[in-house]
Amino acid sequence: MPPAVLPARPSSLPTRRTVLRGLGVGSLALGGAGLLGACSSRETQDAKAVSAGAGFTITDQRGKKVSFDGPVERIATAIIPSPSMLAAVDGRYDRIVGINESTLTANRQGVFGTLFPASRTTTTIAGADFVPNVETIMKLKPDVVLQWGDMGDEVIAPLENAGLKVIGLTYGTQEMMETWITIFGTLLGKKERASTLLDRMHDEDTAVRALVEQYRASTAQKVLYLKAASDGFTTATGSDYMTHWTELAGGTNVAHGLSADAPQVSTEQILAWDPDVILLSAFDEKAPADLFADKALSPVRAVRDRRVYKVPLGGYRWDPPCCESPLMWRWAAQILNPRTASRNGLRERIKETFDLLYGYDISAAETDQVLRLDLNAKSAGYDGFRA
């Protein structure tokens, strides 16, 4: 069915520091209901594609036109979340020849490496700073390189100076993510499939909101997102994607009002916020057991009630925008509203999604792995994700 058209809310663009820190939480949520319906990227998108015989032209998110004479068969990308999205739009991994080091780590840790074994050994072309290894990229002979479009010339100019075609992308909001899907649909010759994925996202937005609607009348639960840092934790602010899926699920981000990107969070601040729920990033090894064992955090409501959870890791980490984001919305909805478990059907949605995106029949054991049943075993209500 066609997506509902919902009113958009004003927003500001995300900063690169949020992405550069690798938290994956992206940036701005674009606020609640306005996000999905209003941003039909096929109508108001930054990626305008024009067919030209056997070739085509894409206007990337820098506003630069990039033309191709024919099909694109070899893609190198320095951008961490893009390979899983390329594979989802393409239905295969075969065209990806170069990736970021962080992507390789995720592929080896999660189920994506099982879906596409080649992803575990793909050549790396950039690290956490996204500066491209041009010599390595040239040896891969890509038809196109995907790179951040808002990090300055230092990450793009070396590629273009070497004569490579570069598509510059920006990231952090649902709208930007939908634009990626549209760009990739054109780049891969899969426009109809890209449209199908977007329509499914719009439908899931409507469905998840309906799932939690009856609980919205009560006071929204306070949610804190934490990512491990060398000297403690950082969190996600109101301009991060985490705020989108938290609010969609019926909660509120306790760090919403903070202005800094990925700010440090002290134990004293966590105690002051006293969140009802704590969600731990999929970008590090910190687990609920670590917080349960931390005596300094024992007075915190979420710790006391054992409502601390590790974010799932599917084809990609579920914290930031990706093609599996609708699964994150359902997961967050059930975390905040355990009574929805019998109606949520997340495990079945995972099965359907992996079949649609990757052509893969995920097993029950692999679904357990995605949902981090081992790490979340002692967290309150997590047995609801077993059925």
Rank of each mutant, 00 (worst) to 15 (best):
P2G: 11
P2Y: 00
P10D: 00
P14R: 00
T15I: 09
T18H: 01
L20D: 08
L23P: 01
G24A: 11
L28Y: 13
A29M: 01
G34K: 01
L35N: 10
L36D: 07
G37T: 14
R42Y: 07
T57W: 03
R62E: 06
G63F: 02
F68A: 07
D69W: 03
P71Y: 01
A76V: 00
I80D: 15
L86Q: 07
D90F: 00
V97T: 04
V97Y: 01
I99Q: 02
N100Q: 15
S102L: 13
A106T: 08
N107C: 13
G110N: 13
G113T: 13
S119M: 12
T122E: 13
G127F: 02
G127Q: 05
G127W: 07
V131H: 08
M138N: 11
K141F: 05
K141D: 11
P142N: 13
G149R: 03
G152D: 14
A162I: 08
K165C: 12
G168H: 04
T173N: 01
M177K: 12
G185N: 00
L188H: 10
E192C: 07
A194I: 03
H202P: 01
V212F: 12
K227F: 02
T235A: 07
T246H: 09
E247S: 00
G250M: 02
G251M: 06
T252P: 00
A262P: 03
V265E: 06
T267K: 15
E268P: 09
L271W: 11
W273E: 00
P275F: 07
P275L: 03
L279K: 09
L279C: 11
L279S: 13
K286H: 11
A302C: 06
R304L: 12
R307L: 13
R307E: 09
K310R: 09
K310S: 11
P312H: 10
G315Y: 01
Y316S: 15
D319W: 03
P326D: 11
M328G: 10
Q334L: 04
I335L: 04
L336H: 01
N337E: 10
N337A: 05
P338E: 06
A341D: 13
S342T: 10
S342M: 04
R343K: 15
N344Q: 10
I350V: 02
E352P: 04
L357Q: 13
Y358W: 14
G359Y: 10
D361A: 15
D361R: 14
I362T: 14
S363R: 09
L375P: 06
R386H: 12
